[in-house]
Nucleic acid binder design. Structure first.
Lengths: 222, 222
DNA sequence: CGAGAATTGGAGTGTCAACTCCAGAAAGAG
DNA sequence: CTCTTTCTGGAGTTGACACTCCAATTCTCG
């Protein structure tokens, strides 16, 4: 792992040497295998040899495509960020109504239920494991979470612009809170092996957002 | 690390051989040193040799007091759970008003600010790192989080019993959501090195709880 | 005091992890 | 076709890590 920071190297973008079509394929195979293993057993619990076997490549190939285990980890972060965001599409891109938010909540809860509450959040768990250990990885993860937060904020902003939320609803604040609740809910759900914490966290958060709504669903008018 | 479960062994409770006063002292020294290191660098990032040096003991002493690294980890979990709960006392034991909740929020945010947002939650980060790897540790952490959740729930319950919260406020649900928001806020705060996520998450949660209040603070009466 | 238990020191062991090296096989450019 | 670059295989190196072993010392308790 790395501790210092280096401004260069676009990381996820395979910058260095040109890649053949075949080269690109094996590189992807390595990243995908590493991502799976690291999701299941953590970064520290995954050796390059494990990756080697899972990807069906030889030792030298890993070090041909990645300078370090650290570099491989950063590629995995990019891969998982993409995967997480895509798994929530197209809902994530249109979180501009309470119904959409509720559907998104159900999707997220459903995903956890499918995998029996194991593994937690692919990038959340890496954030926890790497924040104090690898500053470059941390920086990548900050960007990854920003890409997650943005569509949430934009959805809320759209609702407010449309007058569906009162003016004192702060989309930035609420988006950050929602993402936090999601992450904490995922953590406790992973720990307890049941979706109750995730559901409680998201329901509370959506309830709070709904309290800013200008057209109340069940309650009495002002 | 362990994967299987064994019902025996009370873990945190030093059961086996009797401990001399001196023995208890060195055992505590080992646990405290291990806790610090694991908080800073993670469980996987802390070797028994690191602990040995930090605690100023010899190799055999660690294995005299702990069967495994796994057993040491469980002792650290017990230690950190206690530390986390005590750090929030006496507020945590009396979370039965909105003011108390707000004071608690300020305390938690203040703690993070003091340590420059580093390290996250001592037991939350262990939960993330160990959930998929060590079932015994996971069980201990479940208990630890339950001990955290209980006073929150009891505070909310007291408010409801006293008629300060409406009947449709579910203390269990809200406590779980609050703990989730806290954990997620801590995770993102650790990642981004700023308290904004934690503040947003807790403020949203307290706002949501306040929406169940029967005596509104700033707004007009019913 | 003296026996037995608890505590300590530190050398040693086997394994596994990250990473290196070099030579050979394919692929693309001209 | 041939030169250059990319890709691949696998043996080898170095260090770290979890854990063992045994002998010496200190403590407790009757």
């Amino acid at each position: 792992m790395n501790i210092d920071e280096s401004p260069a190297a676009p990381a996820g973008t395979g910058a260095g040497p040109r890649l053949t079509r075949k080269g690109r394929a094996t590189r992807d195979r390595i990243v995908a295998a590493a991502a799976n293993l690291m999701f299941e057993r953590g970064v520290a619990g995954t050796s390059t040899d494990d990756v080697r076997i899972a990807a069906g490549v030889s030792t030298s190939q890993i070090y041909h495509y990645f300078a370090d285990k650290c570099a491989l980890v950063r590629a995995v972060i990019a891969h998982q960020t993409q995967a997480v965001l895509e798994a929530q599409e197209p809902l994530l891109g249109n979180l501009d109504s309470l119904e959409a938010l509720r559907a998104w909540r159900d999707l997220v809860v459903g995903i956890q239920r499918e995998r029996e509450c194991q593994g937690g959040c692919p990038i959340g768990s890496m954030a926890s494991e790497l924040s104090e250990v690898d500053n470059l990885a941390r920086a990548d993860l900050v960007v990854g979470f920003a890409r997650w937060e943005t569509p949430i904020r934009q959805g809320l902003q759209a609702m407010r612009d449309r007058g569906e939320l009162t003016a004192d609803a702060d989309p930035e604040h609420l988006a950050l809170a929602t993402l936090s609740a999601l992450q904490g809910g995922l953590l406790l759900t992973q720990l307890r092996r049941e979706t109750a914490p995730l559901e409680a966290a998201l329901d509370a958060m959506l309830g709070h957002i709904a309290s800013y709504a200008t057209t109340p669903s069940p309650a009495a008018p002002a």
